[in-house]
């Protein structure tokens, strides 16, 4: 399985005259982690939603293996690519296992409940994300890291080949962020294609195979290998700030540091 999800010169605006993305290209391939990074408001989340097919580009196109994403039926699309948004707030109390079972939706008929096969897939996905032993616990009682792993299990239960995640480490401590990214890298090693929006450039540098850097001007500032994207001039221009890049003392990957604004104490 080597799937390829590609956005080709896409533009998007929620309101006319206020573009959120201009002429942006991005690719998510099977077997690799693609990071989408950039300053707040640069359009990262919008790009991810275009790649998911939840939004339609104003111009340009999004294709999955060369076929326009818009031509997929929604459930068919959901069997190929899964989306994990930010800040999931369920209104009902569900066990972790029930949350993972929800992921079977694209495979289950409208009237039928999940079959024993569906339950088995859910259990397997929980074992893969080390959440099997917390499957009876209430989802909202879980810690942030556990919750994120359960959500990952629930999108894996869709049996997709491409995973698209919006800031999956947003509220996690340093240990759990690394844990989530390690899991993503391992999934890519298993052949999944991973597209991940993140603010943490150092984690991205460590775990992403390719990166797309969006600028404050809603365009692609740079793309390619982390070493090619994470350069001082490029980052400083994209973020409109003074950004320094060194080498990580332990891993040798780029280490990014934002200087305080000039004149600050």
């Amino acid at each position: 399985m080597n799937r390829c999800l590609a956005a080709e010169s896409v533009a998007f605006a929620y309101e006319p005259g206020a573009p959120v993305l201009r002429d942006v290209a991005a690719t998510v391939r099977g077997g690799a982690v693609a990071g989408i990074v950039g300053p707040n408001g640069s359009g990262k989340s919008t790009l991810l939603r275009l790649l998911c097919g939840l939004l339609e580009p104003g111009s340009g196109r999004v294709t999955l293996d060369g076929r326009p994403l818009a031509s997929f039926r929604p459930r068919e699309r959901a069997r190929s690519l899964a989306f994990l948004p930010q800040g999931v707030q369920p209104v009902f109390l569900l066990s972790a296992f029930e949350v993972v079972c929800l992921g079977r939706y694209p495979h289950v008929g409208a009237l039928a409940g999940p079959s024993s096969h569906d339950l088995e897939v859910a259990r397997r996905c929980m074992r893969d994300t080390a959440t099997d032993d917390i499957r009876h616990r209430s989802f909202m009682e879980l810690s942030g890291g556990e919750r994120q792993r359960v959500l990952l299990a629930s999108i894996l239960a869709q049996e997709p080949e491409l995973l698209l995640l919006d800031e999956p480490t947003a509220a996690l401590d340093i240990h759990h962020e690394t844990e989530v990214f390690t899991l993503l890298a391992r999934l890519a090693g298993d052949g999944y294609g991973v597209g991940v929006v993140t603010h943490d450039l150092n984690l991205a540098a460590r775990f992403c195979d390719t990166m797309v850097l969006l600028s404050r001007e809603h365009a692609v500032a740079a793309c390619g290998a982390p070493e090619a994207v994470l350069r001082e001039e490029t980052l400083s221009a994209a973020y409109g700030a003074r950004i320094r890049v060194g080498a990580h003392p332990f891993t040798g990957t780029p280490l990014v540091y934002a200087e305080p604004p000039e004149g600050a104490p």
């Binding site: 998911c52 939840l54 039926r73 929604p74 459930r75 068919e76 699309r77 959901a78 899964a82 989306f83 994990l84 948004p85 999931v88 707030q89 369920p90 209104v91 009902f92 569900l94 949350v99 929800l102 992921g103 939706y105 694209p106 289950v108 409208a110 009237l111 629930s154 999108i155 869709q158």
Partner: peptide
């Protein structure tokens, strides 16, 4: 017949959309 979709919607509107609701 909308039961399965309501499960998805109650959990997360965006995930529901991502799953084809």
């Amino acid at each position: 017949t909308q039961a399965g979709k309501l499960d998805q919607f109650g959990f997360s509107e965006e995930m529901a959309a991502g799953r084809g609701v």
